[in-house]
Design a protein around this nucleic acid. Structure first.
Length: 116
DNA sequence: TGGATGACCTACA
DNA sequence: CTGTAGGCCATCC
């Protein structure tokens, strides 16, 4: 069933520890679809209804791209700040201090990513 | 069945 | 370094 992909994303998002944030690319890679980062965001589109901490999911730059999908753009920021997450002057999350990479429960893979 | 959309990422100019 | 273009996967119409 294709929804298994959604389940993977939900599981990972639900595993995000408090005070930490992850990126779409990280989730996509853990799901096994690094190139389908867009699909991850698409899955989160329904995650806002599932009650998952989608507010802890940000893009590669740490920008809250999907905050508008929460219903309140400021809600996401408040939630993250309530968890101890800090924002820079650009309004992006300090991923270098709060970035959390989910663990894969399957086989390992090469982990090589360049930072900007 | 095919085209279009989506909360992205990477590469090239 | 900034900006633009392409791609990739999954779902919806």
């Amino acid at each position: 069933m294709k929804q298994d992909f959604f389940d993977r994303v939900y599981k990972i998002v639900a595993k995000i520890p408090k005070g930490k944030v992850t990126t779409y690319g990280a989730i996509a890679e853990v799901c096994g679809i690094r190139s389908a980062a867009r699909t991850v965001g698409w899955a989160l589109n329904g995650a806002s209804s599932t009650g998952l901490p989608c507010h802890r999911v940000v893009n590669r730059r740490g920008a809250l791209t999907g905050r508008v999908h929460f219903g309140d753009p400021f809600l996401m920021e408040e939630l993250l700040r309530s968890e101890g997450i800090e924002f820079d002057k650009d309004g992006n999350v300090i991923m270098k201090n709060h970035l959390w990479i989910p663990k894969k429960n399957s086989k390992n893979k090469k982990s090589n990513k360049k930072k900007k």
